[in-house]
Design a protein around this nucleic acid. Structure first.
Length: 950
RNA sequence: GCCGAAGUGGCGGAACUGGUAGACGCGCUGGACUCAAAAUCCAGUGUCUGCAAAGAUGUGCGGGUUCGAGUCCCGCCUUCGGUACCA
């Protein structure tokens, strides 16, 4: 018995295409359901088996929901702008447009082979001018709005200008970088450039000089979430801090809402935790410390105002603007030297040089506002300019970093908390000491009390701080959306007229990064506009297009709006979003921020874009390493068997990843190369043809194997690891190959059967045969031994119906909770049992076909046709569970408590009768059994145990 | 350090609100078919004792709650993910 899946797949792919089975419109009376995948970067290496994991899951849900009476939006597109696409283009020296085109067609071909039910008529590409027109448009909306904290929403900048003209900026409560106050007279007197500078401090998309993460190797700045451990996330290149003039988005204005609204989302706890850690809310107070013998004061932020009596010195960030103003003349040199030293330390050095405290004394003193004690003011790089106020009051009695600093520079320490035994610095348990009015209070009480005093004596105020910084938005690269801003000769920024959008990226031959400026800066005819203005030459970051693409799918053809009103109001938000955790703080944060902004403008009906979020795990690959000596011996490369040289120093060895297909027993402790494997290796890498291979039983050299004794056969052990699937490990599995060998249905089911969706798991082809066998068995339910389709119209027996309804019950509830691996187990169980009963009845098998259709669309479609149906199985109704057959064996655990003594008994109620009626019988026999006992309560849950409380 | 998730056979993993632990698949063992192999089918398969019936034991470790714990509580250990001079 064979299934000709190649013919079946080709047949139905074109049938679905021709009949536009998966096209949806919003004009439909049915309830909507929006299932979204995180769209991929079309990279040069194509999809590997890991990519479709989430897509298979979302496709199953889409098909299931469609069959359950929903109008389902299930689109796909490409995140084609940005660093990866451009890096690939530079490496392969092919223009990004060309490379992107061909990559996308490869991706689409691979995706279509897996039988996804995407509505391709809605495909979007972020690099398409018809798409990025609206990315630029939203950017300009951000540019022309500010965040009003009284209204708690974004308001047009024009109304802010009107208020400035009337009464200056006093009384305006906005998210702003503006520090100084001005009156309406001041405003009128400002030059256009000065007014522009002020407005930049309010705009939600704004340009200013700030310290940014500059990556020399990539030739661009990066946002905080694009930097991991001091190196770029993409490529792992070093990143340094640099002051540059850059566009940023004022995400911080939305920090509170981004944090609070997490509660309303069906996301995993870990996902919510990641976002809330990134936002990093902390409550505290800001306080001013007067600098002794000067007119200056230092503003600090602290979450522990209760420790103020223990503050024995202050520390400013080296970049703090006050440093130059307060440093005493004789210490200027030392301070400047230290500032230079800090500049030379890259972000990475700072992280690597752990706990090594460095700093310099400014010579200035401040007065502790509570004790009036004179305390020294230092600078040190453990205080960061861009968190809080860039200055702290140091409390070595309660902060480990301050304590380390105090010890190193011999500064005084005052203990302010009497801790219980074993309590360490920073421990919040204990009572306050040496703190005047706070003595004897707990930390919590002390914080409450001191905050009251601070406000009463007008020394400072309560303040909530967020770790989250504004997002740097400029990239000095070619392959991105041009920033639609022009400047006049005095440098005032203007939004490009919306009618002139999209500002299309010029076609360049040389698109390589160009120092600190974008490659676009080299195109003078593009930079200079006819009316004497100059264009901004930076482009937008990778997350720009992905921050709103899900809205475009709702109405991708719209030419006059980012998406039509009716369409947006119909589809509203994404019901289920599936994608990887790597976007936890990047894409997902920005998309939520943009969405909230659009919500403030009344352009979208919901405050959150993604109702339910599921993170699929990674599919890992087996990596096989072979060991060779680092230095060639007499010009000859020597490979060694690791198990023979365990005692040798590992420094002399290098490991190289080799294709797993050469390796015998790959992925196991016995993974090794046989002589044939070595020959394959030499064929693959001819530079190793002269290499010496030292195996367990002899040596292989130049085509000859010299045994060490009488041994036959020999092994060259390799080392197995589970890790990423990627080109560099030679372990990429192309879904096309798997589909060609086993069929698309088998591929889809196997990906789901591997394990829970959220979990990372290694790809192991050896297990795929089980799923393949199942599909054959399933097919054989409908076919005779000589492969004739055969089905009977006999009524189903009780036993058969029970199998059916149990399968329906389990599969339905498992799909709802996205436990797709167990669904497949249930299909297998049902198939096995029906096979055993030799059941070939339509009444049983037809619903099973529907049940399995979302998982195995091709086979089910084929069988559906054989069953004599005209329409697609995917438009049929998903089978309903009939609860009549729900009740299973009833087991009773009655419990008797007689004083202190208890006895227990259990019995199986009439195990041979397994449906609703037997419960009634069961209850009777329970009651009979319990006669004479004092029963308080009997609880019956269908299909479950009966609990009897006495 | 802090935050989050998870530890179950030889392996991947089931067990929804506490209720017969190990579903389903892989692998392995034995058998059928075959000249033989592949494929397919049947039976068995946590561990220990036993010919068997059966018994004991068993969900990272140590305690606890409960008639009953993989599941709940307390204290540890390990692994993975995130994050960090964040004041």
């Amino acid at each position: 018995m064979r299934i000709d899946f190649k013919t079946i797949e080709a047949k139905w792919k074109s049938a679905w295409d021709q009949n536009k089975v998966y096209q949806v419109t919003h004009l439909d009376g049915k309830p909507k359901f929006y299932v979204l995948d995180m769209f991929p970067y079309p990279s040069g290496s194509g999809l590997h088996v890991g990519h479709p994991l989430g897509y298979v899951a979302s496709d199953i849900i889409s098909r299931y929901k469609r069959m359950s009476g929903f109008n389902v939006l299930h689109p796909m597109g490409f995140d084609a702008f940005g660093l990866p696409a451009e890096q690939y283009a530079i490496q392969s020296n092919i223009h990004p447009v060309t490379a992107t085109e061909s990559n996308i067609s490869r991706y689409k071909e691979q995706l279509s082979n897996i039988g996804f039910s995407y509505d391709w008529s809605r495909e979007v590409r972020t690099c398409d001018p018809a798409f990025y027109h609206w990315t630029q448009w939203i950017f300009l909306q951000l540019f022309s709005h500010y965040y009003d904290q009284d209204e708690n929403k974004a308001i047009a900048i024009s109304s802010l200008i009107a208020r400035f003209q009337k009464s200056g900026n006093a009384g305006i409560n906005a998210a702003t970088g503006q520090e100084s106050e001005f009156t309406h007279d001041d405003w009128q007197r400002m030059s256009a450039k000065e007014q522009d500078d002020v407005l930049m401090n309010y705009r939600l998309a704004f340009r200013k000089i700030s310290y940014v993460n500059w990556c020399e190797a990539l030739g661009t700045v990066l946002a905080n979430d694009e930097v991991k451990d001091g190196v770029s996330e993409r490529g792992g290149y070093p990143v340094e801090r640099r002051a540059m003039i850059q566009w940023s988005l004022r995400v911080s204005a939305y920090a509170e809402r981004l944090l609070n609204d997490l509660d309303s989302l069906e996301w995993t706890d870990s996902m919510k935790a990641m976002q809330s850690n990134w936002i990093g809310r902390s409550e505290g107070a800001q306080l001013d410390f007067d600098v002794v013998e000067s007119e200056h004061s230092v503003r600090i932020f602290t979450t522990r105002p209760d420790t103020i009596y223990g503050s024995t010195f202050m520390v400013l960030a080296p970049e703090h603007p006050l440093v130059d103003l307060i440093t005493s003349p004789e210490l200027k040199n030392v301070v400047n030297q230290y500032k230079d030293f800090v500049k030379t330390r890259s972000e990475r050095d700072r992280l690597a040089g752990t706990k090594q405290m460095t700093g310099a004394f400014t010579g200035a003193y401040a007065a502790n506002p509570f004790t009036n004690e004179k305390i020294q003011i230092w600078i040190a790089d453990y205080v960061l300019m861009d968190y809080g106020t860039g200055a702290i009051m140091a409390v070595p009695g309660d902060d480990t970093r301050d304590l380390a600093f105090a010890k190193k520079f011999k500064l005084p320490v005052i203990e302010i908390i009497e801790r219980p035994d074993g309590g360490e610095t920073g421990d919040r348990r204990g009572v306050m000491i040496n703190s005047q009015s706070l003595n004897g209070l707990s930390v919590q009480e002390a914080i409450a009390k001191i905050l009251g005093e601070i406000e009463q004596r007008k020394l400072g105020s309560r303040l909530v701080q967020y770790k989250m910084r504004d997002a740097i938005y400029s990239r000095q690269r070619y392959w991105g959306e041009p920033i639609p801003i022009v400047y006049d000769t005095s440098g005032v920024a203007y939004a490009m007229e919306e009618t002139k959008l999209p500002l299309v990226l010029p076609d360049l031959d040389d698109f390589k990064p160009g120092g600190s400026a974008s490659p676009l800066a080299r195109v003078t005819e593009w930079v200079n506009t006819p009316n004497g203005m100059q264009r901004d030459t930076d482009t937008m970051p990778g997350y720009a297009g992905s921050s709103w693409y899900f809205l475009r799918y709702m109405d991708p053809w719209n030419k006059s709006r980012f998406a039509g009103k009716d369409e947006i109001n119909y589809w509203r938000d994404v019901d289920l979003y599936i994608g990887g955790t790597e976007h936890a703080v990047g894409h997902l944060m920005y998309a939520r921020f943009w969405h909230k902004f659009l919500y403030d403008k009344g352009l979208v009906p919901t405050a959150e874009p993604f109702r339910r979020l599921v993170n699929q795990g990674m599919i890992q690959g087996v990596i096989e390493y072979l060991f060779m000596y680092k230095e060639k011996q007499n010009g000859i490369t020597k490979f060694v068997c690791t198990k023979l040289i365990a005692d040798e120093s590992e420094d002399a060895l290098v490991r190289i990843a080799i294709p797993v297909i050469f390796v015998e027993n790959y992925g196991s402790p016995d993974s090794h190369l046989t002589i044939e494997g070595i020959e394959k290796l030499i064929e693959w890498r001819p530079e190793y043809q002269d290499a010496i291979f030292e195996c367990t039983q002899g040596t292989y050299h130049q085509g000859k194997f010299t045994p060490k004794g009488t041994a036959t056969g020999s092994k060259l052990y390799t080392q197995s690891e589970i890790g990423k699937m990627g080109k560099r490990y030679h372990n990429v599995v192309d879904p096309n190959d798997v589909v060609a060998k086993y069929g698309a249905d088998c591929f889809r089911m196997y990906e789901m059967f591997l394990g829970p969706l959220e979990q990372s798991k290694p790809w192991d082809t050896r297990n795929i045969d089980g799923v393949s066998r199942f599909l054959k068995k399933f097919w054989s339910l409908f076919h005779t031994d000589d492969d004739r389709f055969e089905i009977t119209d006999e009524p189903a027996t009780r036993e058969e119906l029970k199998i059916l309804h149990q399968a329906i019950k389990h599969v339905r509830s498992d799909i709802e909770r996205l436990s797709l691996n167990t669904c497949i187990s249930h299909f297998m169980t049902a198939t096995n049992e029906l096979k055993k009963l030799n059941c070939q009845k339509r009444a049983v098998l037809e619903p099973i076909v529907l049940l399995i259709a979302p998982f195995a669309p091709f086979i089910s479609e084929e069988i559906w046709e054989l069953l004599g149906h005209q329409t697609s199985v995917h438009l049929a109704e998903y089978p309903e569970f009939n609860p009549h057959f729900l009740v299973e064996d009833v087991i009773v655990y009655p419990v008797c408590i007689n004083g202190k003594k208890r006895t227990e008994a259990s019995f199986d109620l009439n195990a041979s009768q397994k449906d609703m009626e037997s419960t009634v019988l069961g209850m009777e026999s329970v009651q009979k059994w319990l006669e004479g006992q004092s029963i308080k309560k009997v609880v019956i849950v269908p299909g479950r145990m009966i609990n009897i409380v006495i």
